[in-house]
Amino acid sequence: MRLETQWLVAGAPVSFGVFEAGAAPLPAGEMVAILAGAGYAGIDLGPPGYLDLDRLDGLLLAGGWADVPAGDFADLDAVLDLFDRAPAAPAGFEPRPTLGPPGLPARFAAPGGNAPGLGRADWPAFAAQVQAAADRCRERGYEPALHHHLGHAVETTEEIDRLLELTDVGLCLDTGHLLLAGGDPVEALRDWAGRITQVHVKDGSHRLLAEGGTLRELMGRGVFPPLGAGDLDLPGVLGALDGYRGWIVVEQDTLPAHRPTADIAADQAANLRKLKELGL
């Protein structure tokens, strides 16, 4: 199939609520088995220490979240150390460090472009932190991607544009987070095509976002539904990705108490089938 060497598709622990739980809602080996059995080619790292990199059932490591450091690089280096231990990947499909901008309490309380972000005077120092983190990743042999995110300092299209102007970091384009922040993922994939180094595909519900609530409450109500069940133009996204080569990470951010693990697992299998139905 034409796209087999253009895209590889990974699943992610965040789809099972791993990041949101005080303790992991299911053993890592069980999650690996679910995603491998569904036909995914890779998996995201999840919290450092969660995955056993020697037991990935043939899955490749697609990437992993690391907060943009405000001080030293200890936490970022810990993630990169794990990347060094990951199974060897084909050229172009090495794991991406997905750099996370800081969360802002006011935005967690009212996500979706409804609360102010960083002040103009704060941007130069923040951009310098992002650039330093990106440089550190490259020194270690990995090409980073900045992950915009609801509730965080980089949420809107305007903020993504500003960060791309102030740094040379790549972008992890997340369709669900951009959609619910008022952006158009199809346009964004075309406008930022030269800077996108990883893509997270998730759907989003404008109806649930409009009901209001904190980001955590919205996730618990299913603001990120299965692919095809929300407002994302998924065929348009896949069409706009035609020139992109790299990982597509399917995510469906949820809370562990939101739904039983068996239902979440069924969603992940259905999400991959949906992509294949659309020609992946």
Score class of each variant (00 low, 15 high):
H152T: 13
F126E: 00
Y142R: 08
A41S: 14
P124Y: 05
D54S: 15
W123Q: 03
P105I: 04
E139L: 14
P90R: 02
Q129L: 11
L76D: 02
L118D: 00
R136P: 05
P105K: 05
A115E: 00
D72S: 03
H152P: 03
D77H: 02
F19K: 14
P144H: 03
A74K: 02
A127P: 07
A134C: 10
Y142C: 08
A110L: 09
A88T: 08
F108D: 13
A38F: 08
Y40G: 09
G141Y: 11
D54T: 14
D135P: 07
W123G: 02
G37Q: 07
A125S: 11
P25G: 13
A109N: 07
G100L: 15
E30D: 15
P97D: 03
R120N: 15
R136A: 04
A23G: 14
A41G: 14
M31R: 13
A78Y: 01
D72Q: 00
W123M: 03
A33H: 13
A121H: 14
A33G: 14
G92Q: 02
A89W: 03
A109E: 14
H152F: 07
S15R: 10
S15Q: 11
D54F: 10
F16R: 12
I34Q: 15
P13I: 10
V68H: 01
Y50Q: 08
P105W: 06
R140F: 07
L82H: 02
A110N: 09
P124Q: 05
Q129T: 08
G63S: 04
A41R: 15
P27R: 12
I43T: 11
D122R: 09
L150Q: 06
A127K: 04
G39D: 07
L56H: 08
A38D: 10
W65D: 13
D67C: 01
A127Q: 04
M31L: 15
A70S: 12
A145W: 05
A28Y: 12
Q131M: 06
A38V: 06
A36Q: 13
P97V: 03
S15I: 12
L35T: 11
P87L: 03
P48E: 06
Y142H: 11
L51D: 10
V32N: 11
P90K: 02
L56S: 09
L35D: 11
L146N: 00
G113I: 00
D81A: 12
L56Y: 09
G112A: 03
A115R: 00
G22M: 14
D84Y: 02
P116Q: 06
P87I: 02
A109R: 12
W123K: 03
Y142L: 08
F16S: 11
V32Q: 11
G37L: 06
L76V: 00
S15P: 13
L51V: 09
A115C: 01
G29M: 10
F73N: 10
R55A: 15
E30W: 11
D122G: 08
G117N: 03
R138H: 08
L26F: 10
L45E: 08
H152V: 00
R120K: 14
V68W: 01
A41N: 10
P97H: 04
E143C: 13
P101A: 01
P47E: 05
M31G: 13
A62Q: 06
A133R: 04
E20H: 15
A110M: 05
